[in-house]
Design a protein around this nucleic acid. Structure first.
Lengths: 203, 203
DNA sequence: GTCTATACGACGATAGAC
DNA sequence: GTCTATCGTCGTATAGAC
């Protein structure tokens, strides 16, 4: 390794390509995929829009790579939790915590997923989003049902409805959560689980 | 009133203008404001894009009218609840119910608000969205604090965090709620309040 | 790896006939 | 109230020089 490594040199592990992808992620997350132009991305990177096409096939392939990479990583954690020997309720808690951690570590990708995935999924190229969504629903509902069956969770709940509430409440936090504030993802997960499990009623 | 009143006649209370606005609302809600073209709206209405401008100044003025009308109506209900003599907790429940009713009655407008308001609010024309948002936060947090003070709600909660969870969970339901199914807005509100107040933990 | 230059379709919006 | 026709702008993407 030589004396000075510039930010875009491969030595520090971040290629120019990765840098551009991160810039695009920030803009997609902030103003939406369709609402972000390739000129916006190029401007933010200090280059001209045509130069982006030296690194990427298209704007679509950028968001594709962002979402696929993120989801593949996230599912490694989910799969490990599912395969563990925790109780159903403990697995649910672990998944909630892993999800809030994902918001902390990959805010942009989660935001893009929340805001644009539904629309993107209508194109064949993004068909894997539908598949992953189904997998997520199956994971959650089966754990909720197992928790009810084992007596850990209340039996009078509409599992399908609880699933939607929990799923949405976890992910929608990306709209207001900002890393670097006083709350760590673990803090948010603790508070959220306290509400979800015990309610806000005075006991 | 004469023999036959066509759908676009004023006799049945719905002008052609209102019809076009409803068509636009459906498209804005489904694919987003920016992602909906004036040609999409015109196509769905069976006319040409230029003809829309006989009824509306611009695409922006359409979404402006939709959001403003909806919010004005909704806030009449919120103001009445706030001014009532219910306990803080009962007021919170009433606001949750009124919000789910709004999803049932004005799905498109709620969806547009959820998906596009943040971005639209950056333009001066939509400044009232920011003001209404602030009003909503004040209403919720003051009721939560009053509920804690009166002993109706748990004292160990981070009110600002609970506010965000509740606000988001209520409105995000517009993503999956479909009127005409087995669940009425009141059913959804009941289940949601059961989770929020008592938690999903077993007894 | 970035530039200059440009193709070309889609966009919001307008003018005036019917 | 809708049509025909069109304007100017901005969108993604490409080709080839440096």
């Amino acid at each position: 390794m030589s004396a000075a490594s510039t930010p875009e040199s491969p030595e520090n592990g971040r290629s120019r390509r990765d840098e551009l992808l991160a810039i695009a992620a920030g803009l997609f997350a902030e103003r939406g995929f369709k609402n972000t132009t390739v000129r916006d991305i190029a401007d933010a990177a200090g280059i001209l829009s045509g130069s982006l096409y030296h690194h990427f096939d298209s704007k679509e392939s950028m968001v594709d790579e962002l979402l696929d990479t993120f989801q593949t990583e996230l599912w490694k954690k989910y799969d490990a939790i599912e395969a563990s020997d925790l109780t159903p309720k403990a697995k649910l808690e672990a998944i909630v915590r892993a999800s809030f951690e994902a918001i902390g570590e990959h805010r942009d990708e989660v935001a893009i997923f929340q805001n644009d995935a539904l629309h993107l999924a209508t194109f064949e190229r993004f068909g894997y989003l539908i598949e992953r969504n189904r997998k997520f629903r199956t994971l959650w509902t089966s754990l909720l049902e197992a928790g009810v069956a084992s007596g850990e969770l209340r039996a009078d709940l509409d599992v399908a409805l609880v699933y939607r509430f929990v799923r949405d409440t976890v992910w929608v936090a990306v709209r207001w959560y900002r890393p670097g504030g006083t709350l760590t993802p673990a803090d948010v997960a603790d508070q959220y689980l306290a509400i979800l499990l015990e309610g806000i009623n005075h006991g």
